[in-house]
């Protein structure tokens, strides 16, 4: 991180050192971090994630088994 523009990465960037676990993981760019808090986009994601959860809940409803089958 010494050369060039310092990316807007971690809360404690000084701890992301080469050859440590933190160095090898994916980190969000500033754009992604901004999107995570963008009200308009997050309203859309609120609807999308809710829809996805409802779909998953629908598939997770207890399944009836005909009498004598269990």
């Amino acid at each position: 991180m010494a050369r060039g523009k310092k990316p807007n990465l971690a809360a404690k960037e000084e701890e992301i050192l080469p050859y440590t676990q933190a160095y090898y993981t994916a980190l969000p760019t500033g754009t992604i971090k901004w999107i995570r808090g963008c009200i308009v986009w997050q309203l859309i994601r609120f609807i999308v994630v809710n829809s996805r959860m409802i779909s998953m809940i629908g598939k997770s409803h207890p399944h009836p088994h005909k009498p004598g089958v269990h």
């Binding site: 997770s60 399944h63 009836p64 004598g68 269990h70």
Partner: peptide, 16 residues
């Protein structure tokens, strides 16, 4: 033997 049984195996349901 006449009742309907309802299954909810953890291998068949999801989680949020």
């Amino acid at each position: 033997s006449k009742a309907t049984f309802y299954s909810a195996s953890m291998a068949d349901i999801g989680a949020a």
